[in-house]
Nucleic acid binder design. Structure first.
Length: 275
DNA sequence: ATGACTTACAGGGTAAGA
């Protein structure tokens, strides 16, 4: 398979952000894009606009909140084949926070982990329960024998190096030891945090608060992550954050975050950029 | 700071986000 670029972008309202989304797709041309916080019912998903922009998609909407989608560039000839539209483990959970697709030989999970504020409280409890379900499902995915990417808004700042200054966020659900421990346990299964692996000593942010002039001060957090199992990690080539999208007028509070995986066969070290 | 924004839903003021 050729080199593939995979991105994750919390759009914070797909209707409000559609012009930005189309502008970003046009300019960066990711092969696969995982979207979160559609904030729209499934019937409101702008599939015709996306097809016109050269993308096929699967999506799972919800009124007002949540909502996830996986886009695949039509020219690849491998439209996303839906594998599931919820995490297993709780049939009563009605939040649209997970969708999974097969894209050629790749498996792509797109997730929007609960925020969990205020904590302590029921929302934080829900966050941790959801995280446990993700950890359990991820164990199966990791060992499926195919390259897997778990991409999305994890709502976890993994370490104090992933935030401009933890001081004013110490009570926030994103920095709690329980949240970080779940993330650590997930990685410990054998997942590679792609951006941190590519840039072990650089400050990387993917979210800047609307409050307090977060963007203008570069007061950011790294909470959007792309996790790779071994079959995918061996192909990891490049990655980055499309900060220019955060600088547009009326932006999402997140910026698109992306990686590229070199071509080659699963389980083999990449030998080059391919064609 | 139960925030200093922003979105959805609605058609004003809540709920939610992180």
């Amino acid at each position: 398979m050729p080199t593939v670029e995979i991105a994750t972008f919390n759009v914070n309202g797909i209707r409000a952000r559609l012009p930005h989304l189309l502008q970003w797709l046009e300019r960066e041309q990711p092969d696969i894009a995982c979207l979160q916080e559609l904030k729209a019912v499934s019937e409101g998903f702008p599939i015709l606009d996306l097809r016109a922009a050269g993308y096929e998609a699967i999506w799972h909407g919800q009124r007002s909140w949540n909502g996830v989608a996986i886009l695949v560039k039509s020219a690849r000839g491998t439209p996303p084949a839906e594998a599931r539209r919820a995490l297993p483990g709780d049939p009563d959970d009605v939040h649209s926070r997970y969708i999974e697709a097969e894209v050629g030989e790749l498996v792509v999970g797109c997730l929007y982990l609960p925020n969990g504020n205020p904590q302590p409280g029921p929302k934080f409890d829900y966050k941790l329960r959801w995280f446990e379900r993700l950890i359990e499902h991820a164990a199966t995915l990791r060992a499926c024998g195919r390259p897997v990417v778990l991409a999305g808004d994890y709502n976890v700042v993994p370490t104090d190096f992933d935030i401009y200054n933890p001081r004013s966020w110490l009570k926030d659900a994103l920095l709690q030891p329980e949240s970080r421990e779940c993330y650590r346990r997930l990685l410990a299964q054998g997942w590679t945090d792609a951006l941190r692996t590519l840039y072990p000593e650089e400050r990387i942010y993917t979210f800047w608060d609307y409050f307090r002039q977060g963007w203008q001060r570069n007061a950011g957090l790294r909470i959007d992550h792309l996790l790779l199992n071994a079959e995918a990690a061996t192909r990891l080539h490049e990655g980055g954050v499309d900060r220019w999208v955060r600088d547009l007028e009326k932006p999402s509070d997140h910026a698109p975050t992306w990686i590229t995986l070199d071509g080659g066969r699963a389980g083999r070290a990449a030998t080059g950029a391919g064609s």
